Computed example of a mutant assay.
Amino acid sequence: MVTPERRLPRSVDVRASAKINLHLGVGAAREDGFHPLETVYQAIGLHDELVATEDEAFRVVTHGAAYVDVTDVPVGADNIVARATALMAARVEVEPTADFLVHKEIPVAGGMAGGSADAAAALLALDRLWDAGTPDDELLALAAELGSDVPFALIGGTALGTGRGELVTPIADSGPWWWVVVPSSAGGLSTPAVYRRFDEMFPGADPEPASAAAVISALATHDPHRLGAALHNDLQEPAIDLRPDLGDLLDRGESEGAVRGLVSGSGPTCLFLAESPTAAHALAGALRGSGQPVVLVAAGPVPGAQVVDAP
């Protein structure tokens, strides 16, 4: 008697990129507590990778590169991969089951949307794993339910974000641009805490966020000095107020040759724009030599969530 060959569980492997904000204009808080934003996102070459495998139960196992502390990644129902699974399962009308292995290279709580990248990867992986065939506009709508940065994490490249950041429009970018990324060695910064400090420091903030026009114009020139001059982050001052060491780090990077230093989003990761790949690696070496334990080099823009391997 011939024993039927057992089918191996299907798996889908998705890679999603870190984001940085080249412009982050923040308006005064609305009545619902949200701040209107005008931001320019760019996806850069630091990635989280998620493998989703068919299973009769639900599980998420998270590990990371040596420099990534995953102890602060939420577990249980609060985990963003679990939330993405529940949302996609409700749309497709299937049981929310799958086995996930998440490998993180994007710093946790670093202002680079690592959680959003994982959510985008989970949505895309489950869409393929369950043969859902979700139209792009519906996938983006699901992403927006999970967080303001998740739609961009699906799209990647360079894009203008409005509303709470969830309304995403791709924009022209003459890149590549070279970035030196310095995650904080002293722990993360709470995004709500940074926004609260913004409200305290700027009680008369304009309801309309600052325009991103200067950055959008600079992106078309491929001139790093023009882009450096246009970089803008309304959350940088409150982030530095909460963590003065970030200001010291920005000063050090610029003294070592960066075109411009910038806090990434709500921090505490700091970014440095370099003139070229050679300049980026030289700057990274100088910052390591000054005692920074983790210094990364990445180029952008790169694509958003992408299937690496699928059945």
Rank of each mutant, 00 (worst) to 15 (best):
P36H: 04
Q42W: 06
R59D: 12
A77E: 15
T53L: 07
A43D: 10
G76A: 07
V68P: 08
E31R: 15
G64I: 03
V75P: 04
A43F: 06
A90F: 02
L46I: 15
I80T: 11
A43P: 10
E31N: 13
A57E: 14
L87E: 06
V40W: 01
A66L: 07
F34N: 10
T85E: 01
D69I: 04
T39M: 13
E38Q: 15
A84N: 12
L46C: 06
A82T: 13
F58D: 06
V40F: 03
P36G: 08
V68A: 08
A89S: 08
V70C: 14
A89L: 05
V81Y: 00
A84K: 07
L87N: 02
A43L: 12
M88P: 04
Y41A: 08
A90N: 07
N79I: 01
F58W: 09
A89Y: 00
V51H: 00
D32R: 04
V73W: 01
G33A: 09
I80G: 02
G76N: 06
A82V: 05
Q42S: 12
R83Y: 02
D72T: 15
T85K: 01
A89D: 02
T85V: 06
G76L: 08
F58A: 07
E38I: 08
A43I: 10
T71Q: 12
H35F: 05
A57S: 15
T62F: 00
D32T: 06
M88K: 10
V81N: 03
V51C: 12
T53G: 04
A86V: 13
V70L: 05
P74Q: 04
G64R: 00
V75H: 10
I44T: 11
M88C: 13
V70P: 08
P36A: 09
Y67M: 02
D48A: 13
A77W: 08
D69W: 00
E54L: 09
G76H: 06
A52K: 01
Y67P: 03
A57G: 14
E49M: 11
V60C: 03
A90Y: 01
A82P: 12
P74C: 07
V81P: 07
R83Q: 13
T85N: 03
A86H: 09
D78Q: 14
R83M: 05
G76S: 07
A65M: 07
F34W: 14
H35W: 09
Y41C: 12
G64W: 00
E38H: 11
G76Y: 05
A57R: 15
L87C: 06
V61W: 00
F34Y: 15
F58R: 08
G45Y: 07
A84Q: 09
A82F: 02
E49I: 10
D69F: 02
E54V: 09
D48Y: 13
L87R: 05
G64F: 01
A66E: 13
A86E: 15
G33W: 09
A77Y: 03
V68F: 01
A57M: 07
I44K: 09
T53N: 03
G64C: 07
T85R: 00
A82S: 14
V60H: 00
V40R: 01
A57K: 12
V81R: 02
